[in-house]
Every structure is written in structure tokens, then in C-alpha cells.
């Protein structure tokens, strides 16, 4: 079909977490501009399987930009060149015929490579487990409309809650810092009345778990905000700092 592109891919291949990896070059011929980036990789993989070569491993699931499973650093950019877009929603029309595309995994000590482009982001789960919840059980809760929440607060909390936990913030940050992710959750609960009883204990527990996982510190370059597919704002990080210092120096 006309308008199709021939591309060269340089893909990071790594057998497992303990193996050392390297870049391998593949041809991606006849790529339609209507394909998503992951569909382009599907096509390459199908070609590899036909040749009995090991297909490229990458994480993906919903392909609608909401599950947060897809990742990839494409030509140096987590989730590729478009703003507010996950890799699964990136289309090949963002590239040109003849391009060479370098594809790497998210790189961070806290995100060890599982295989090829897939990394282990369970550190994020452990941070959430440390305090990313309201300690209430099922049942016995008040009627939903007994808690009135000003719309501006609800909307702002929602903005923080849209984080999909993909880890692009860590991948983009020169320090591999997870603060945008952690602060989004801390912020959501810090703003809502439901989060108040555990507000400071939560902030402390989540920050300390984040440190334990080996993420770097924030140097306020705001690369995370620029690359966040859900456009989570760095004001969340400021709020987290406030919550944490409050927890440590005043409320603790």
C-alpha cells in the first residue's frame, strides 16, 4: 500500500534480569502509518516467529492508554515523542519513512529488566501497599452523600488520581525518581476528607518505602511532568513534600 514506511529498529534485547543485554537491529518494512507503535512491534515479532527467532518481549495489555502496562523509551523519550500519550496510543504516523528508531526499556535500579523491554515495576505496588489506601473495611460505611466535597477539591483530587502507574516519570527523570508517582497518590488522599485520619502516617510510610526501593531523589527538573501520559502535575510533589515535612516535624 502506498504511504507505508520502511524503518530500522534498534531494540534492546536481554534474555533475563541477570543476563547482560545489547542492541539488535531489525528491519521493519511496509509499516502502515495507521498502526500503533505496539502493532508495529507485533508485525516485527510475527516476522521473527516465522523465522523461529525469539520475539521481542514488551509489556502491554489494554492498548487504550489506561492500564499503564506499556512502557518503552523510544528515541530517548518514555512513551515516545508525543505529549500526554502512552506508547500504545502512539501511531506510526509520528515517524517518517527511513527512520531509525531506538527502543530501550525504562531504566532504573528499582525497575530491573525482566526480559528485553519489559521491566519489573513491583516497587510501585510495594509503595502503594505501604500506605496508599484508606483503612476502612467493606461495609459499615456512611452513605456516600454524607461526605460533601467541594467540586474544586474533588476535581483536583481526581487529577492526581488519574495516574496509571506506568513509571514513565521514573524513566524520564535523570535521577530515576518516583516522586511524581508517589506524590499523586499522597495528594489524592491528602485533599479528600476520607484521607484525613491517616494523612501524615501515609505520607511518611509511602515516602520511606519509596526510598527503600532505591529510587533517586527529586531535583525539580520537571521532566516527569513533561513525559507523564496523564499530565500529572509537579504541584503534587510540592504537596507531598509539605505532607512529609509536616509528618516529620509537626504532626508526627
Amino acid at each position: 500500500m502506498s504511504g507505508n514506511m520502511n524503518l530500522t529498529l534498534k531494540v534492546w534485547r536481554q534474555k533475563n534480569s541477570s543476563a547482560s543485554g545489547k542492541f539488535v537491529t531489525y528491519k521493519a518494512p511496509e509499516i502502515s502509518p495507521d498502526m500503533s507503535f505496539l502493532e508495529m512491534l507485533d508485525v516485527v515479532n510475527e516476522g521473527l516467529v516465522k523465522k523461529s527467532e525469539d520475539p521481542i518481549q514488551f509489556d502491554h495489555d489494554c492498548r487504550e492508554g489506561i492500564c499503564g502496562m506499556c512502557s518503552l523509551v523510544i528515541n530517548g523519550e518514555p512513551h515516545g515523542p508525543k505529549r500526554a500519550t502512552t506508547t500504545c496510543q502512539l501511531h506510526m504516523r509520528s515517524f517518517n519513512d527511513g527512520d531509525t528508531i531506538v527502543i530501550e526499556p525504562f531504566r532504573a535500579a528499582a525497575f530491573p529488566v525482566v526480559k528485553d523491554l519489559a521491566v519489573n515495576r513491583s516497587a510501585f505496588d510495594r509503595i502503594q501497599q505501604a500506605g496508599g489506601y484508606v483503612s476502612i473495611g467493606t461495609g459499615g460505611v456512611p452513605d456516600a452523600n454524607e461526605i460533601a466535597i467541594p467540586k474544586v477539591i474533588a476535581d483536583e483530587a481526581f487529577n492526581s488520581a488519574t495516574c496509571i502507574g506506568c513509571g514513565a516519570c521514573v524513566a524520564a527523570c535523570k535521577n530515576a525518581s518516583a516522586m511524581l508517582f508517589v506524590s499523586a497518590k499522597i495528594s489524592q488522599y491528602a485533599m479528600l476528607p476520607q484521607g484525613q485520619p491517616e494523612r501524615y502516617a501515609r505520607a511518611e510510610a509511602m515516602v520511606l518505602q519509596m526510598d527503600e526501593e532505591g529510587f533517586g531523589g527529586c531535583t525539580n527538573t520537571y521532566a516527569c511532568e513533561a513525559k507523564c501520559p496523564k499530565e500529572i502535575k509537579v504541584t503534587n510533589i510540592a504537596r507531598m513534600n509539605r505532607e512529609f515535612f509536616n509528618a516529620e516535624f509537626i504532626k508526627g
Binding site: 535500579a109 527538573t221 513525559k227
Partner: peptide, 28 residues
């Protein structure tokens, strides 16, 4: 902090990330 932050990314990227951050913030 710089040493700590370096440790958080032991393996760098082949292509330097483009992230829209200002130069000075990355070179403090």
C-alpha cells in the same frame, strides 16, 4: 544526593532523554 541519584540509574540510556527540562536544572 548526586551519588545516590546516580545509583538509582546504574544503566543509562543509549539516547539521551529529551524531556523538556531546562538546561540549568539538569546541570546544577
Amino acid at each position: 544526593t548526586t551519588l545516590h541519584n546516580r545509583k538509582a540509574r546504574p544503566h543509562g540510556y543509549a539516547i539521551k532523554p529529551k524531556d523538556g527540562s531546562i538546561w540549568s536544572s539538569r546541570n546544577m
